[in-house]
């Protein structure tokens, strides 16, 4: 099986890391370099969601509390509040929905500030995640890239990463510098979340439903082209990183947590072959576990 998954990654021109596990049988797994620590990109929004929901459960945060995000201080990004021109007032739980369904960078950074890096680190440890570090949000990630490329303009810095004619600046994809995790840790988080071990029933349902509503279907979803199969996921995209972690539920109710991290050789912003390879690798892994 691993050779077939490896061949899918090779053919797409990506380096891939994968872990898949049946939710009702933790011993039933598919692993391909599943313990490698990889920068998470926007996948960090999943542990952030879990941490936020726990703080709601603990009564430390009011999910209905309103927050106003001013355009000048909002994190840029390709979707959601990041795109808007005027101040936006929203509840914390709605920010979480924006963060998870459209990978809204502005909403995520605002929520991360409310939750706090230290408080989140403690929560992730209490969840049993020993290889997951949320070190910073998207705004800080962009600042780091600007520093490494020596460019003040975030768009210009991102353009350096998207140039096939030059080498990527050193350290941009080093896990030690970024929010990072392993495929195995991400499936552990999903498995415990789905089992209701981390959150109240209400918050568990909220987290699952929100992940179910993610609009991006081109990665994990592309491997399961049938409406009877449900895919609840969170993607991550930064430079050459293409990730998705999620839970695939088959019509009979059996479900599988899958975490796939990839780094592409090409650096173009649109890479449909890499996206499809994530779907195909997930399909191979789930079929192996069925």
């Amino acid at each position: 099986m691993n050779a077939r998954i490896r061949a899918v990654f090779d053919d797409a021109g990506v380096r891939g890391w994968l872990h898949a596990v049946a939710l009702d049988d933790a011993a039933s797994t598919v692993s391909l370099d599943a313990d490698a620590v990889v920068p998470m990109a926007s996948v960090y929004k999943l542990p952030l969601l879990a941490g936020f929901c726990r703080l709601v459960d603990d009564g430390e945060l009011d999910p209905r509390a309103q927050l106003t995000l001013e355009p000048a201080t909002r994190t840029p990004g390709p979707t959601g509040l990041s795109l808007l021109a005027d101040p936006v007032t929203m509840s914390l739980r709605d920010l979480a929905v924006m963060m998870m369904t459209v990978s809204d960078n502005a909403a995520a950074d605002a929520l991360l500030t409310v939750v706090g890096l230290e408080r989140l680190a403690e929560l992730l440890e209490s969840f049993g995640l020993q290889q997951t570090w949320v070190r910073r949000g998207t705004a800080a990630n962009l600042l780091d890239l600007q520093r490494r490329t020596g460019l003040d303009d975030p768009d210009a810095a991102l353009a350096v990463l998207a140039d096939n004619n030059r080498a990527t600046p050193t350290g941009v994809y080093e896990a030690a510098n970024a929010s990072a995790s392993t495929p195995r840790d991400m499936t552990l988080l999903l498995r415990r979340l789905w089992a209701g071990e981390l959150l109240s029933a209400a918050q568990t349902d909220f987290a699952k439903a929100t992940m179910q509503r993610q609009i991006f279907q081109h990665r994990l979803g592309s491997g399961f082209p049938h409406d009877a199969i449900r895919v609840a996921g969170k993607t991550g995209t930064f430079g050459a990183l293409r990730h998705e972690v999620g839970v695939v539920t088959l019509p009979a109710g059996d479900a599988y947590a899958v975490a796939i991290f990839t780094r592409t050789a090409r650096v173009d912003s649109r890479q449909p072959r890499a996206d499809a390879a994530i779907g195909l690798a997930a399909q191979l892994a789930v079929n192996e576990l069925r």
């Binding site: 990654f9 021109g13 380096r15 004619n165 030059r166 080498a167 592409t264 090409r266």
Partner: peptide
């Protein structure tokens, strides 16, 4: 270039 390098070191890209 580009190719998957799998942990190898690589020099600058020459066009």
């Amino acid at each position: 270039h580009p190719t998957v390098l799998d942990g190898l070191e690589a020099g600058p890209v020459q066009l």
